[in-house]
Each structure stands twice: as C-alpha cells, then as structure tokens.
C-alpha cells in the first residue's frame, strides 16, 4: 500500500539545532561569538589582527580559523599576536558548519576569553546557509572585488549585522561605485552597519572597533 507521509521539516534543522547548542555553550562561558564571512583574500585575517591589536588591552579574544586545506597560516598569525587560535581544516568543504565549530569550541579555552572570532572559509555563497551559533555575522567586502557583489551574491548579505568594506586605500585606483554598492546593501539589508576601512592604513578601523565594543557590551551584561 502506498501513502503520503507529511514531514514539514526544515532541511537545515540538524545544523540549526547544533548551532543552538554552540550558542548555549558560548553563553554559559559569557563569550560573544562573531562569524566573519568574505571571499578569499578580502582581508578577514588582516581585519582580525587589527581587531586584536585594538582590543588586546581590554579583552581576551580567541580565533577559530576555517580553511579548506590543511594549513595553519592564518592561525599562526593569531598565535603570534598573542591570542589562542584553533584551526579547522574543512577537508575541502566550502564553509564551516555547526558540527565543525562545535569541535573547535572543545579545543578553545572559553573561560579565558570574552570574544570568539570565527574566520569562515573564503567564499561568498555557502557559509550563508550554515548557521554556527555565533551571536552575529559580519561580511568583509573589499574594493578590488568590485561594486556589484551585493547583486551577484545577495544571500550572504542578508543575515549580517555589519558590513566592512576593506582596502579603501585602493579606491583611487579602481573603478568602484560606492553609491551603487551601498544601494545593493540597502535593498538586501538596510539595518546593517557599514564600515569602510583599510587594514593597510588603519583608516576607519576605530569606528569599527567602537561598534564592536558596543555590540559586545550589549551581549554581555556586566
């Protein structure tokens, strides 16, 4: 006999419920989690290093580095900056998921840190579909990538709290229409905070850090 069985279940629910466990673990340790997504080379690691530099006097940070290959280049830079880092090799996978983050959290000294930064795999498509359990999401775009990225990769911009536009020092050399770029973001996510910065010159970094501090304070009632 054949029949129809109603299911009505979100396909991503297994990942989402593990993400909820990650969140609970962070909350229990009073750690704020931030997920950073960007295309390869946009400046995720550079921004993380700038952020460590600016916050090191007041906070301890931990960084989870996701990479598709078995390298520790980015994690080594964080360690050299004096903060704990855990490298996740995704085994060729194009994104981090909640299972991978859960493994990394087990290796991270959560009771010694206040801010956990997750550097997702360089990719503008896949990380958007996998929640991790972090408290908020940031995308880093960069000037050389072009001003049409919000139109071509809309999904990544939709669930984010802040958008950093890095490599502003290159603006004079590249045809990048800032107004066009911003209109794409406006359509997708009018609430997102916007920070044009340069990790090279340090321009705009202070505004980003100010926002981050306010965010952290609102998530970690003292």
């Amino acid at each position: 006999m054949s029949k129809i069985v109603p299911v009505v279940q979100e396909i991503m629910s297994a990942n989402d419920s593990l993400a909820a466990q990650n969140r609970a673990k962070l909350d229990a340790a009073q750690v704020v989690g931030m997920n950073i997504m960007a295309s390869p080379g946009a400046g995720k690691t550079s921004t993380i290093l700038r952020t460590i530099e600016a916050l090191a006097a007041d906070y301890r940070l931990g960084v989870v580095e996701g990479d598709t290959a078995n390298v520790t280049i980015d994690a080594d830079k964080v360690l050299a900056a004096g903060m704990p880092a855990v490298q996740i090799n995704t085994g060729g996978n194009c994104h981090l998921d909640a299972v991978m983050l859960s493994g990394a959290l087990a290796q991270m000294p959560l009771d010694e840190i206040e801010l956990l930064i997750v550097e997702n795999v360089g990719n503008l498509i896949c990380p958007a579909s996998f929640t991790l359990g972090t408290h908020f999401n940031v995308v880093i775009a960069s000037v050389p990538e072009g001003d049409d990225k919000p139109y071509k990769y809309p999904n990544i911009y939709r669930g984010i709290d802040a958008l950093i536009l890095n490599k502003m020092d290159l603006l004079p050399y590249i045809d990048f229409d800032l107004a066009y770029f911003r209109q794409g973001i406006e359509i997708l996510n009018p609430e997102a905070a916007f920070f044009p910065i340069s990790c090279k010159t340090g321009e705009g970094v202070a505004e980003w850090i100010e926002w981050l501090k306010v965010r952290m304070a609102s998530l970690r009632p003292a």
Binding site: M1, S2, K3, P6, V7, V8, Q9, I11
Partner: peptide, 9 residues
C-alpha cells in the same frame, strides 16, 4: 527550504 512530505510503500 524544507521537506514537505514523502510518498512511501
């Protein structure tokens, strides 16, 4: 993005 139903024997 969900699985609405399945048909089974």
């Amino acid at each position: 993005f969900r699985l609405e139903s399945i048909e089974v024997e």
